[in-house]
Design a protein around this nucleic acid. Structure first.
Lengths: 196, 196
DNA sequence: GTACAGTTTGGGCATTCGTCCAAGGCAATC
DNA sequence: GATTGCCTTGGACGAATGCCCAAACTGTAC
């Protein structure tokens, strides 16, 4: 089961998943093909359907894996934050690494759309997003932010929206949206310093 | 130029554009094909490349047209609103008509993604979104909302994000997000009534 | 050595893709 | 009638699609 050649198979499997994560943003979910994946992973086309039952299956596993991985990093940020505004700031700082046109952020949006056409994918993704919102809401509740569930839902949606818009307008930086977003999490003494 | 047969040509052209708006959400941007468009529009495949130079061109024109049309409706709402919260409420009410899995809202997201892979499309779309944000920011400035440009940017992104998430969670209604979103546009006397 | 399980190869299958084009249809002008 | 312009037809082209499979390969166990 852990024979050297079985291990090499696992490695090829991983390479295919990585190729999928690269190609989904590059070409668009429905334009990622068997041969494209094989070429990017450095294998022959036949091997794709050996490791995965279908291209659809490969794309779903790749996308869900990346999303879970990325969000688990964000979860860690919640635990360390000392206040609601601190949490939002930290999250904005983390968000700064994504341009809206990079693989990571585009995989999210592509998967949202693919999920509307694939029941299995939608259910898996619903769970991931719900889990994220639940954790975020719990953190907000700890800091006595009013309506934590609603706030978490809006902030989560805003983050994805920002990524979407940033692809068109790179000027949408944390610095420009931070002051506005902080209004969503009214701390005891949140000061408005905006220009106006 | 306005001969009966030329008019019928225009009508076919319109039908093709409408078919594109339907199929982009149904199949995904990169999976809309010549024959699919022709069938949905009730014409032969050949006619597609008579009216449009390419499928890409047809999809772009269809998507940009719908977006301009929808946003012009929202622009009208700004003019009638009597306060910032009023504007947000009206916009939320309008947003309520879109489930996140209907053609109209999905065309937006699909086009955002397609725009990252098509320079012409991206430039056209950048202009549309910038125009929307500019009008919105102007309205917010009139009502003395602090940082109108930043607020408009965030609200615009949030709207798209809400649509994206609503496809997964239909419980994301105006009623549940309204109170939170209103925090973004601090009127003189905005009252927090959230449960907590 | 032989047997074996896991992996890879390379080509084959029917189907679909975007685009093009010669031929035909139709209504108005001469 | 013939001619002109716009639109439509139906089929063709090479290329790409997802999926499949017999055969070859690779390293381990006997």
């Amino acid at each position: 089961m852990t024979s050297p050649i079985a291990l090499r198979g696992q490695e090829v499997r991983r390479r295919l998943l990585r190729a999928a994560v690269e190609l989904i943003p590059e070409r668009g979910w429905s334009a990622v093909s068997t041969r494209l994946l094989a070429e990017r992973a450095g294998v022959t086309p036949g091997v794709v359907h050996y490791h995965f039952s279908s291209v659809r299956e490969l794309l779903s596993q790749a996308a869900l894996g990346t999303m879970r991985e990325m969000l688990s990093g964000v979860h860690a940020l919640f635990e360390q934050a000392r206040s609601a505004t601190d949490a939002v700031d930290t999250m904005l700082a983390a968000l700064e690494e994504y341009s809206g046109r990079d693989p990571a952020s585009m995989v999210f949006t592509e998967t949202y759309l693919a999920a509307t056409r694939d029941d299995d994918l939608r259910h898996a993704m619903t769970e991931i997003v719900a889990d994220f919102r639940r954790r975020f809401a719990d953190a907000l509740a700890r800091w006595r932010v009013p309506d934590p569930a609603g706030t978490a839902a809006v902030v989560a949606a805003t983050i994805d929206g920002i990524l979407l818009h940033r692809g068109l307008d790179p000027g949408l930086t944390a610095a420009s949206i931070g002051p506005v977003l902080r209004r969503l999490v009214p701390d005891a003494k949140t000061v408005e310093e905006d220009a106006g």
